[in-house]
Design a protein around this nucleic acid. Structure first.
Lengths: 70, 70
DNA sequence: ATTATACGTAAAGTTGACTTTACTTTTTGG
DNA sequence: CCAAAAAGTAAAGTCAACTTTACGTATAAT
């Protein structure tokens, strides 16, 4: 899944390492997320979003719209 | 993690089975989520939230506020 | 009271999110 | 240019999200 982490880090001038520490995950996890190697757990997505003052939906990009209930 | 799924289903008058089908997961997954046996993946959280026209943060309740970047 | 429908539990299996370690490449600053 | 910092890759291991199957219980309607 696509995300804005790389750009957000650049804008806020924090390194992957610093973000990793703030999220209490490893640097490898951040790298793998950025490069789309895997998708965040809901907790990690939430932590990252909070750090950048965004909602999960703002920080992470969900592709397909699914059938909704009216 | 706590969530509003049970109440949302009641209000919208849909069964766990129906929600499961809409989300393309099994009924057991919905039950286990409702009962807090495990936490949703970000995709499932997103699907459920969309079905009820909510954001993930509205449908699922994150407890701890973490250190934020100013 | 009985049936059908919805809700719940249990347990074994698969898969992918995340860790750990170790090494390589790229970028940045003096 | 050179060193240090940052970014990246690889690979093996752990753990929890989710499936599958198969029962058991509660609720509602006839």
């Amino acid at each position: 899944m696509k995300n804005r982490i790389q750009k957000l880090c650049r804008d806020k001038r924090i390194t992957q390492e610093e973000l990793a520490v703030l999220c209490t995950v490893t640097r490898q996890t951040i790298i793998s997320l950025e490069n789309g190697r895997y998708n965040p757990s809901i907790f990690l997505a939430h932590k990252i979003s909070q750090i950048f003052h965004l909602t999960i939906e703002e920080a992470f990009l969900f592709e397909e719209d699914i059938h909704e209930l009216r």
